[in-house]
């Protein structure tokens, strides 16, 4: 080291450790993340967590704004009422029907769209932007649009369905207790396909291309490639997306609320619209919370079962 030229450091402005008070780096490392986190945590705590606890407590109380003098703790009375509430059981059945068919069609059509978008064709960028557009349409507007489409006065659908022989004459299926649920389900499929397509497309694009080349070299048919490579790779993504989406759809009241309001004759009343009408129309908050707790429990059971199945089936 001797003999090497030593450059003049006299002009240096910063001397080590000079400028700042010495706080412990450790303390700083402990506290700093909470500086970034606290607004989010405080807000979630105040607007979601506390009301959630209050909401659960409501289900053990009688809180009807229309009967302000009858309020107070009533134990499990709301739950007993729920058990014998015929509308609750109808809503439960409707929820299953609504969720199952919505998710099934959304998933299958979404998968098809994702696989199409994973190939090359002319005008793909524009096509993608256009087919994803329904996702951007505000839900209340989707609901209104489809309600109008099903209206025989201004919508073409009843006429087409009649022409195809599905309906005996062009009438509004939203007024038919037998068929009404298919209205919101159709709107929901329309609205939800892009979501599945986007997530599945992202998953598809993460499958290494060499795998397909290898399969091709090995002489696999397209169907074999699909079942042996594509599906197993997508499985984890499918499981998690389907689970989250199922929960979301079961909770999703907007479409039904706008299109049918739960009618006719409760034929489209699902649990979440029932919660909303109970709270909003009858102002019976205690009972609304009871239904909500029941829905939460059902969804939790469902999530646990699906996660357990995923663990069993997916080995990745």
């Amino acid at each position: 080291m001797e003999g090497k030229p030593v450059i003049d450091r006299a002009q240096k402005t910063v001397r080590p450790g000079e400028t700042r008070a010495r706080r412990s780096l450790y303390l700083q490392y402990m506290v700093e993340p909470f500086f970034y986190l606290s607004p989010a945590i405080l807000l979630i705590g105040a607007v979601i967590m506390i009301p959630l606890i209050i909401g659960i407590s409501y289900s053990f109380q009688s809180i009807e704004l229309l009967k302000p003098f009858a309020s107070g703790w009533i134990g499990f009375e709301n739950y007993v009422d729920l058990w014998s509430d015929r509308k609750f059981w109808i809503a439960m059945e409707n929820t299953l029907f609504w969720t199952f068919w919505s998710i099934t069609f959304q998933f299958l059509l979404g998968l098809g769209l994702a696989m199409l978008l994973n190939t090359q064709f002319f005008g793909k960028k524009l096509f993608q932007a256009l087919v994803f557009l329904p996702w951007a349409v505000p839900t209340f507007l989707s609901a209104l649009t489809w309600a109008w489409l099903f209206n025989p006065v201004i919508g073409p659908l009843p006429h087409w369905l009649a022409a195809l022989g599905i309906l005996s004459e062009p009438y509004n299926i939203l007024g038919d207790p037998e068929l009404a649920m298919w209205g919101p389900i159709t709107a929901n499929i329309w609205f939800g396909v892009p979501f599945f397509a986007i997530t599945l497309l992202a998953a598809l694009q993460s499958i290494p291309g060499e795998l397909y080349e290898a399969a091709e070299v090995d002489g696999a048919t397209p169907w074999q490639t699909f079942t042996k490579i594509t599906l197993p790779f997508l499985a984890p993504m499918i499981a998690i997306t389907v689970m989250l989406r199922t929960i979301w759809i079961a909770n999703f009241a907007d479409l039904i609320f706008v299109m049918t309001g739960g009618g006719p004759a409760n034929s489209t009343q699902i649990l979440s619209t029932y919660i909303f009408t109970t709270a909003f129309r009858k102002l019976d908050f205690g009972y609304a919370s009871t239904i909500a707790v029941a829905l939460l429990v059902i969804l939790l059971i469902y999530a646990v079962i699906l996660l357990w199945l995923r663990k069993k089936l997916v080995k990745i």
Binding site: K12, V14, R15, P16, G17, E18, T19, R20, R22, R23, S24, L25, Y26
Partner: peptide
Amino acid sequence: MNDVRPRDRD
């Protein structure tokens, strides 16, 4: 210098 921040260590 344990507790000196990177920017002040030169």
